[in-house]
Amino acid sequence: MGFAFQERYQAGDSPLHLLDARVKVVATLLLILGIVLTPQFAWPAYPLIWALLAGLSIIGGIGIGRLARTATLALPFTLAAITLLFTTPGSPLVQVLGLTITDAGLGRFLAIVLKSWLAVQAALLLAMTTHFTDLLWALNSLRLPATLIAIISFMYRYLFTLREETERLLRARASRMAASPTGRAGGSLAWRARVAGGMVGNLFLRSYERSERVYAAMLARGYKGQLRTLNAPPLSRRAVLLGAVPVAILLLIELVALIWWR
């Protein structure tokens, strides 16, 4: 299918897996904030931040290379920043196709790409070591609207069911149309779009009716409009301290960067 639909969570019992999910969520957001706020031209800061994340990935049993590779998934978006190479005032470095790449432009571009790559690694660390239900539970006890969290956990519950439903629809379409060896699609564009649209409509009706059945089943079990969850256990001081360590290290890097490398 070629669709990024695999869960990133890696089951395990590393210290990172066992850490309170609330601490992990807050620490991840702080790490990403710190990464984005890094002074642009503080070049020594980037390898240090990467070393911090790599260290965490070893503790979490993920592996440096795997984390770094998976984090390249946001790289296509760098196209959006590529014009900075040519448009930032600075001294010219190279000429490409008649466009001048300036040193300041190259610097700004690299800084954005690196920051984005590091931020994705931080987000991946969270997703790879925290089961999604734990993540939602953490967001819930961090006072996000309970209804929204309930909707998202419902979505998660039916995500993979509906994916399989979609795969069946796609397989049915593929077996109805005999693909030509040239790979050329048959029919007019409007006809193809109509078929795909029909599949989407079909999927909507199946989903809608499924939601009605689910709701009836919930009512039969005594549902009153709110999902009930267990009370959150108190946050242990040890967990908070453990979560504060990487954030403190990043803060240190940022301070040094602000003072000496900017």
Binding site: F154, R157, V200, Y208
Partner: peptide, 23 residues
């Protein structure tokens, strides 16, 4: 009280519908 199951399943629908493509 229908809010949560309806919105949740339909969010999964939009996610899955994004897989359906045409050349």
């Amino acid at each position: 009280e229908r809010q949560i199951p309806l919105m949740g399943v339909l969010a999964a629908f939009i996610f899955a519908a994004q897989m359906i493509n045409f050349p």
